[in-house]
């Protein structure tokens, strides 16, 4: 029950994040959805870490956070520069690459 409950919560958060990516068009919100998915993964890491009695899961979560921080920096920089040129943050408007 212990682990299952946390994993269920993590799953719910992950699904919310994934659906956010699919449904929302504001790229900042989409980005937040991605962050939520990472956090859901972290929650699962910690639950398993406690289950096995090892700290490796916590370390994995730590690295995920670090990488997420790096990702956010770059991602937001991209969003900002896109907004500068296109005057929009809608992901649907950023489809020039298909041409």
């Amino acid at each position: 029950m212990t682990v299952t409950a946390y994993l269920a919560l993590a799953s719910a958060l992950f699904v919310i994040g994934a659906v956010t990516v699919l449904v929302r068009r504001n790229s900042i919100i989409v980005f937040m959805g991605i962050e939520l998915m990472l956090n859901a993964a972290n929650l699962a890491f910690l639950a398993f870490s406690r289950m096995w009695g090892e700290l490796d899961g916590q370390l994995a979560a730590l690295f995920v956070m670090v990488v997420a921080a790096a990702e956010v920096v770059v991602g937001l920089a991209i969003i900002v520069s896109l907004f500068r040129t296109r005057r929009t943050v809608s992901v649907d408007d950023e489809n020039l690459m298909r041409h």
């Binding site: 994934a18 990516v21 699919l22 449904v23 068009r25 989409v30 992901v91 649907d92 950023e94 489809n95 020039l96 690459m97 298909r98 041409h99």
Partner: peptide, 12 residues
């Protein structure tokens, strides 16, 4: 189609 959300849907 160039819509990143469609690609995300495919991945999902």
């Amino acid at each position: 189609n160039g819509f990143v959300r469609s690609y995300a849907a495919t991945m999902l």
